[in-house]
């Protein structure tokens, strides 16, 4: 493409002139930037499809490999393994998505578009909020697709019914959203997508397995039980599971929500600080 600009002199109007716009409100900034990120997802749905593959494979493998766990004495009576497993898969998928929020931010930094945003009269914090919100929407879509698969193909049908499942989904979203701020914070300091992926994997892989996600905690070896009991993920998964199975939740859901909000708040402080550093 070697198109050139025409050389004829321009009238004064189009290029320069008195500026009439001096920055948008915070709400507009967040709305416009969130829409931007979501449009990228719509334009390139591979991101959604590929990020669905991993949880789908986990769902397929774990539901087959671990199904005999339902027959062990520690397993809750009268519960199908798929109904036990699915809430944990929801939480796990939301966590993987949270990691993607950080990766997406790093890609934006590389892409050059963040350099543009920095030169505009907008608050940099709104870029971060938009990132976390657009990833929340993306995660919600992912989780709904997962639920559809689980219900149609694997017979997921917990005793909590639609309301219980939606409550578990909402809780998974809150946990994922809170965690996305931790990853956004890490992203603004690391600024390297590969390292970011590795850090995320190293952090989440043991957390997921040293928890109640796939097997009852009482079935774990003693030392692992101790780890699982202090692992916040155990509590998040338990809360989501109890909601889906309409078991008594106790303070579990509230604790998970509060913990997520605290992580979000701390993450946001560090994310904004790290984000201010020059690219």
């Amino acid at each position: 493409m070697t198109s050139t600009l025409t050389a004829e002199p321009r009238t004064a109007e189009p290029l320069a002139g008195p500026s009439t716009w001096h920055g948008s409100g915070l709400g507009t900034q967040i709305l416009v930037l969130t829409t931007r990120s979501l449009r990228a997802v719509v334009r390139d749905p591979r991101m959604i499809i590929f990020s669905l593959l991993q949880p789908l494979i986990m769902l397929l493998l774990f539901s087959q490999i671990f199904s005999s766990i339902a027959n062990t004495p520690d397993f809750p009576r009268g519960v199908n393994y798929i109904d036990y497993l699915m809430p944990a898969i929801l939480v796990n998928t939301a966590m993987q998505s949270a990691l993607q929020a950080g990766v997406g931010l790093i890609n934006d930094m590389k892409n050059g578009v963040l350099a543009r945003f920095r030169s505009l009269p907008i608050r940099l914090g709104s870029v971060l909020v938009a990132r976390s919100l657009s990833d929340l929407v993306r995660t919600a879509i992912q989780l709904l697709v997962m639920l559809l698969f689980a219900t149609v193909l694997f017979g997921f049908s917990p005793s909590g019914g639609v309301l219980g499942v939606l409550a578990a989904l909402a809780l998974a979203l809150v946990v994922g959203w809170g965690l996305s701020w931790a990853f956004l914070a890490i992203a603004t300091w690391l600024r390297n997508a590969e390292v970011m992926q590795m850090v995320g994997f190293l952090a989440m892989f043991p957390l997921m397995f040293a928890s109640s996600a796939y097997v009852p905690v009482r079935g774990l070896p003693g030392w692992l039980q101790a780890v699982a009991n202090v692992n916040p993920l155990t509590h998040a998964v338990d809360a989501a599971r109890n909601l889906a199975l309409s078991h008594p939740v106790g303070g579990g859901a509230l604790a998970a929500i509060v913990t997520s909000l605290v992580i979000a708040a701390v993450g946001a402080v560090f994310a904004v600080r790290g984000f201010r550093r020059p690219l």
Binding site: T28, R39, R43, N111, L114, R116, I122
Partner: peptide, 20 residues
């Protein structure tokens, strides 16, 4: 410093919107 995923027009619209 442009968003590679967005069209040329959408890039400019985005900035104009952010400018108010």
């Amino acid at each position: 410093a442009v968003d590679e995923q967005l069209s040329g027009t959408d890039n400019l619209v985005l900035i104009a919107r952010l400018l108010g």
